[in-house]
Every structure is written in structure tokens, then in C-alpha cells.
Nucleic acid binder design. Structure first.
Lengths: 138, 138
DNA sequence: GTGTTTGCAAAGTGTTTGCAATTTA
DNA sequence: TAAATTGCAAACACTTTGCAAACAC
């Protein structure tokens, strides 16, 4: 059902987020949002941009990922204490993390059940419930 | 029941892990293992050591935390992509992460239920199931 | 035109490493 | 005294930032 979004959709989403659709932002948004769910780091996205002949600096990739995260277009996943990973799928779901390869993989929804979510401590509100299942070659 | 472990216990645990009980390792191990469950970063532990007049370099703190982690005396928790956090409680349990203060807090066992743990992908074995509930001041 | 965004290079942060000096067994 | 460990400073990897040039509206 949810096919590749037409170009205008991406442009519209940037506008809605208050982000000027510059050449760099548009190119990165298209790479990320028109190709299904993806897990990636800043370096990975930068490398992919360059090999697709999208000229963009690494600094801009970092800044753009930050802006996209704030805008809710992507989300950050915490699995490594020395590198940021992101996911284009912002809906509630969880991850496998392959320790050997540093790859992320979605856990199918029917494969995990968090039956009870804890009450947030007094004075706080819940932001997210993230489950990471670490695996390695057996 | 589980009172403060006597000095010899810590020494014995280091020996069992194949780690020579040097002054630095012994001091750090005592700070960590004789004071209940603690969440901390390398910098935090280093600062605490210095203020307790335990002379130890930051490099040694890093190296020691790594060795303790491999030995299973402590475990690492992944909540921040720019800093490593550790926990002296190595048994199965989950965490709140206060985004405002960067503090970790245990989730009481009866407050969370992971009813179904996913099958690890083919060719992999499960290492851990970590739940992080992010909260912030409301 | 005016304010925003980019790219570069420099700076910053947390962490690791090489190696001489020290310590442990 | 032989092997392991420490501390320092330098090196590292990843990320952020200052600022002039380029760009969007």
C-alpha cells in the first residue's frame, strides 16, 4: 500500500518541518524517506550520498540528521556508545543489534511483547520504550 | 541479606577474573562492588576516586572498566551515543533514563514485563534483552 | 536583498594506545 | 627479576562549531 512517496511529498514534509528544501536536504530526505525502512549512521549516509553523486559535506549530514530527528522524520537508536545510529521508521518497534557486524534489524512486531510498561517516576513523563536484543554469531 | 562484601571477597573476585589485585583495581572494585547498585560513567568514577584520595589515572579507569566488563563484574548500558555508562548490577533488569539529567535508574522488576522475547535471527545467539524507558521532566 | 544554509577547517569530547617507569608475584 | 600494570601524553574517532561564501525566498 505504502509505495514510494512522490517527490513532492518529501518536499512538503520538509516545508512542514520548517526546513528549507535545499538541494542537500532534499537529496538526503529522498535517500532516506523514499527507500523503505533504513538503519544508518552519519558516515554511512555520507558515503552513500557521495557514491550517488550527491555533493554534501559530512558536517551538513550531521546537522541535517539532527534536524530531521527533531522534526520527527527519523529517530535515533542507542546501541553503541561511540556512534549514533538512526532509523527512518519512527513508529513504535524494536531492534536486534548484531554485535559482530554492528548491524541493526527490526524485530517483527509479533516476535516481541512488552506486556507491561512501567509508570514513569514521579515528575517525569514517558518519552519512549526501547528494546534492544543483542545477538552475535553462534 | 546481601550485605557489604568483606574486602577479601573483592580481592577474590579479581583473582578469579585473572586480574592482579593492584592498588588501583582493588580500590575501584571496592568503590563499585561494596556500595550497592550503581550507575556511572568513567569520568564519574574517576572524579569519585580522586575525591576519595584514590590516585588513579583516567586511562586506568577506562582500562579497568573494560576489564571488569569482560570479567562480568559490571555491565555496560547503552543509552547515550556519546558516553559509556556502566552498572554494577549484572543481573537481568531494565532502566529508566532521565533525558534531562542523564541519570539512569533501575526499573522495579514488577513494573515491567517482557512477555515474549524474540527468537534470535538464524545463525545468531541471544546475548541480552535490554529495555530502556526514556523519561523527561513533565 | 535578507536571512538561512553550506562547507571547510578547526575545535571539542570521550576513549584508546605507545611506551617508559613502576609494581606485582 | 620477569611479566603485568600504570600514567602520561599523544593519537583517535566521531561530532559540533565559527565563519565566510553560496543559496533560498
Amino acid at each position: 500500500m505504502n509505495k514510494v512517496r512522490p517527490y513532492s511529498k518529501v518536499l512538503e514534509r520538509l516545508r512542514k518541518a520548517g526546513l528549507r528544501p535545499t538541494r542537500q536536504r532534499l537529496a538526503l530526505a529522498k535517500m532516506l524517506l523514499e527507500n523503505g525502512n533504513r538503519h544508518f549512521s552519519a558516515e554511512m549516509l555520507h558515503a552513500e550520498a557521495l557514491s550517488s553523486s550527491v555533493r554534501v559535506s559530512l558536517a551538513t549530514v550531521y546537522n541535517t540528521l539532527h534536524q530531521f530527528t527533531i522534526a520527527g522524520l527519523i529517530r535515533e537508536i542507542y546501541v553503541d556508545s561511540s556512534r549514533s545510529y538512526f532509523d527512518t521508521n519512527t513508529s513504535k518497534h524494536h531492534h536486534f543489534f548484531h554485535e559482530d557486524t554492528a548491524q541493526l534489524e527490526d524485530i517483527p512486531d509479533d516476535q516481541i511483547i512488552v506486556a507491561k510498561t512501567p509508570d514513569p517516576p514521579a515528575g517525569t513523563m514517558l518519552k519512549s520504550v526501547d528494546v534492544v536484543v543483542r545477538v552475535s554469531a553462534s
